[in-house]
Every structure is written in C-alpha cells, then in structure tokens.
Nucleic acid binder design. Sequence first.
DNA 1: GAACATAAGATACGGCCGTATCTAATTAAT
DNA 2: ATTAATTAGATACGGCCGTATCTTATGTTC
Lengths: 195, 195
Amino acid sequence: MSEKKTRRRGAALEAAILKVAWDQLQAQGYQALTIEGVAAGAATTKTVLYRRWPDKAHLVIATIRKFGNLVSYQVPDTGTFRGDLLDLFGQLASVLDTLKGETFRGLLSDRLKQVKFDQILDRLNNDNALASYVQPILDHAAARGEISQARWPERVVNLPGILLLNEIFSRRELTLAAQTAMVDEILLPVFSVKQ
Amino acid sequence: MSEKKTRRRGAALEAAILKVAWDQLQAQGYQALTIEGVAAGAATTKTVLYRRWPDKAHLVIATIRKFGNLVSYQVPDTGTFRGDLLDLFGQLASVLDTLKGETFRGLLSDRLKQVKFDQILDRLNNDNALASYVQPILDHAAARGEISQARWPERVVNLPGILLLNEIFSRRELTLAAQTAMVDEILLPVFSVKQ
DNA sequence: GAACATAAGATACGGCCGTATCTAATTAAT
DNA sequence: ATTAATTAGATACGGCCGTATCTTATGTTC
C-alpha cells in the first residue's frame, strides 16, 4: 500500500470537498450532515473547510450551486397568465425534486438564524431571485391585457415565493394540486383576474 | 453566610427556572440563551431542565406562555371586513412587541428543524391558532355581505398567517404600513372585495 | 535552485448539546 | 417512624461547533 504524497490544493481540493458534501447530503440529508463529517470524508480537516465557508449553510449552498440543477429556468410562455404561473411552479417543483425536501427546509432554517444586519441584503438577493422569475410573466400578461399593469407592489411580486416557502414547510412537498390551488385561489384573485 | 439546605421541587423549581429563562431571554435574546446558562442561573443543572423540556425551543415556548401576554386576543368587531383584518394584524403586532423580533425568528427557525412527522400535528396546532382568529372575521364579513361566503380553502384562511411570518422574517418587524399593504394589496383582492 | 509566500494539514481548546449514571434529599405510603 | 418511591443534583461522556496555533508541503519569484 502506498502512502499518499500529493497534497491537493485550491480548486481541486475544493471540488473534492464539494463532491463529498453532495454525496453526504443526498445520503443523509441536511440535518445529519456535519462539517467534520465532510472533512473526514474528503480526507482533510475542518480547518480547510472553515477557510472557505463560514458554516454548514454556506457549504451546502455552494454544493447545491455546483451539483443541483438550479440554473435552468426558462421563462414560461404558454400564452396565458394562468398557464405561465403554473409553469413557474412546475419548474420550481422539479428543482426541489433534485433536493430532498428536508434539505431545503434545513437550509432555510439555518439561514433564518443569521438574518440580522444582512436583512436587506438577504431580501435583495434571495427574494429578487424569484421575483425576477415572476416579473417577465407579469410583463407578458400585461402586454396581453390579462392584468391591468405590469408593475405591482413588492409584496405582491414576492407572493409566489412566499406561498412556495409555506408549501415546503408545512407539507414538505409541492404537489400539482397545491400548485393549482395557489394559482387559482390566491394569485389570480390578487391580480384581479376573473375566472 | 448560610448554606441553602432546602431543595426546590416540582412547581416551585419549575417556576424559578422559567423566571431565569425569561430574564435571560429579554437580556440576551434567543440565540444567546443556552440550556446550561439557564440551569446555572437557576442554580440547578441541565439534567433537571431536560427532564421537563426536550430542547431550547420548548423551554422558551413554556417561558413565553408564562410571562408573555399572548392570550388576550379579542375577536375584532369594527364593522367592516377591512377594519377587522387591520385590527387582527394590530393585535398581533402588539404581541410581538413584548417579544424581541429575534426571539420569534430564532424560535421558529429552531422549530422548523424538527418538523418531520409532526407536520400534520404542527399544522393543526400552530396554524389553526391563527386560522381560528381569522374564521370569526370571515363569518362576520359574510353575514354583512362583504364577502361571498364564510368558508374558504385552507390556504386562503392561512394566508394572513403566512404573510405575517414573511413580514417577521424579512423585515424583523410588523409596521403599520406593512399591515395596511398586506390587507389592501393581497387579502382584500383574494376575498374579492372591491376597493 | 534557493528563498519566500501561500495554503494544507494536524492538533488542541473551550463551549454547548443531549444522554447516562450515580447520590442524596424530599415526599408519600404503610 | 420506618420504608419505599420520586425527583433533584452532581458528574462524566461523546459529539459537533468554531477558533487558534503550529508544522509541513507546495507554489512562485528572483
């Protein structure tokens, strides 16, 4: 048996760590994943991890960014406002399927602890991610005349995201029935769309 | 100086612990409060605390139940649906003022971690607490003819609670402007109330 | 290729968690 | 009153966190 002599550095080391983190995330879920466990799995030490990520939440975010299929959002264009909203939720549901529901909840729970002075920052970063998905849909609907205007208050634009979060928390999944209910019972009325 | 010889038991001991927990919660906030710290402050050991509460979240809940003014909800009766909704949010805001915003967020964050099989249970307990506040308001509004019916889908009835949570998380507080916006921009449209 | 800078890796620390085990005090039962 | 059942209190453990310190390997630079 040969002793390892090469010492990984930089990007190569980081990639190896993230791979282990992703595997453990899939195998054990968010709660059970520990910094020390990932370090051990990657045959390094937690010192190395703490040099890169401040805590578990950030490590997992980096892992998901690398291995999750999160970046493939396509602006829906079904021809109707309702169809576009359903398509938006459908795409989000398929993303969440690649993660386990527990991962998303655990991650968000961890992050909630830290929202203090980064509130505004957090608001701008996270929420606008989803708001930026919603805005084009509103633009199209307004152009078609389905809704009265394209610009809506921040809370209204963020509403799909809020409903989504609630769904994940309380039900752990995002069923088709739930998607339809959210669109028909809440979103369409808020935008004053007659059904 | 006299050594303490009496050993507190049962309710007396529990009351002493909760008092210390409440003081530390006010002084340090949720994050900084620790089981060991409360035990030390109450001149006992964490074994005693763990016999009573499974974790920090439950200890704090018990503390708030005892010292917070949470139980004084009065069903609003302002004469209008809009007025009742605003009154509901107003009452909630005053409750949250007795807690620090951080306490509520920290507590909820901790609880989110544990929602697994107790999801349904959790749903019934927590959400229905707020839904039970909302339902009388809907009954009154329907009786006055302001809304078309008193029975609405679960998601709709829970919507005020969801909006409230989002407000606490993203803004740390519940301003009057936010309350008005939630009512006028979201809730009234959802219930199809013309403005 | 020698000297320097950088980053990995090893180790140890104090803090808190949650559990287990043992003792000693208090209360209740006979 | 003596005995039995509870429950408080003390102590110790392994686990993980996040930080600090030190050594050692790998580069980069001249």
